[in-house]
């Protein structure tokens, strides 16, 4: 699997390269600033990009901007954004085009290589990987208002949706909640129905379910 990596701190870039290579990813470009990232994304068309939000030259949200621009030119280009902090505002911007292939994780998640690599693979396959912190914030907000879309869901369905928003598979949700995969499937189809999501392939519906809250 071909990966473009953008991270300005040498130690972290080096660590990520080693980590990803250990899991048989092919690093086609490892860059340290916004403009070269954009060029690499458009020229190399990687299977997935792993991008730090804050990059030179401005040290603001250069990486995020480059990823968004690249996705305009290459629709659906899978991007996993890493950051020292997560903002709902940025999560919305990343998910806004509704085409999936988006990840937004805290840098700490790299500490668990297996799960991190699973997230990278999922994003590459067109799914999502939202940091549990982002998801928690979304839920904290929505559960406060009676008019929120969450009000229509049962507590169990909310739990399933939260895990789904993180981008977990049915099997992984079943394991986390200690229920059978069959009941997870039952819950997810209830959620899709309650959120009025159109019939389409499962991965896309999962993205839409997350988007339903963001609005």
């Amino acid at each position: 699997m071909r990966v473009v990596l953008a991270e300005d701190l040498f130690l972290l870039r080096d660590g990520l390269v080693r980590l990803l290579e250990a899991y048989d990813f092919e690093i086609v470009a490892a860059v340290d600033n916004g403009p070269s990232l954009l060029r690499a994304l458009v020229d190399e068309r990687p299977d997935v990009a792993v991008v730090d939000v804050r990059l030179p030259p401005t040290f603001t949200d250069e990486g995020l901007q480059a990823a968004l621009t690249a996705r305009k030119q290459v629709p659906g280009l899978p991007v996993l954004v890493l950051s020292q902090y997560v903002e709902q505002l940025y999560a919305r911007e990343l998910l806004a085009d509704g085409s999936g292939g988006i990840g937004y994780l805290l840098k700490d998640r790299v500490f668990d290589p297996d799960q991190f690599v699973e997230s990278v693979r999922r994003v590459a396959a067109g799914g999502t990987a939202m940091d549990p912190d982002v998801v928690a914030k979304l839920f904290a907000k929505d559960s406060n208002g009676p008019k929120g879309s969450l009000a229509r869901l049962t507590p169990r369905e909310r739990e399933v949706l939260a895990l789904m928003a993180e981008g977990r598979s049915n099997a992984s949700i079943a394991q986390a909640l200690v229920i059978t995969e069959r009941s997870v499937i039952k819950h997810t189809s209830n959620i899709f129905a309650k959120l009025d999501l159109p019939v389409s392939d499962d991965a896309n519906r999962r993205v839409l379910a997350v988007l339903a809250f963001l609005r």
């Binding site: 939000v53 804050r54 603001t60 949200d61 903002e87 709902q88 505002l89 919305r92 914030k137 904290a140 907000k141 406060n144």
Partner: peptide
């Protein structure tokens, strides 16, 4: 990253 307007928008999103 973005200045006051987006920072306040982010605040609004995080507010209960």
């Amino acid at each position: 990253d973005r200045g006051l307007a987006d920072a306040v928008r982010a605040l609004a999103l995080d507010s209960p």
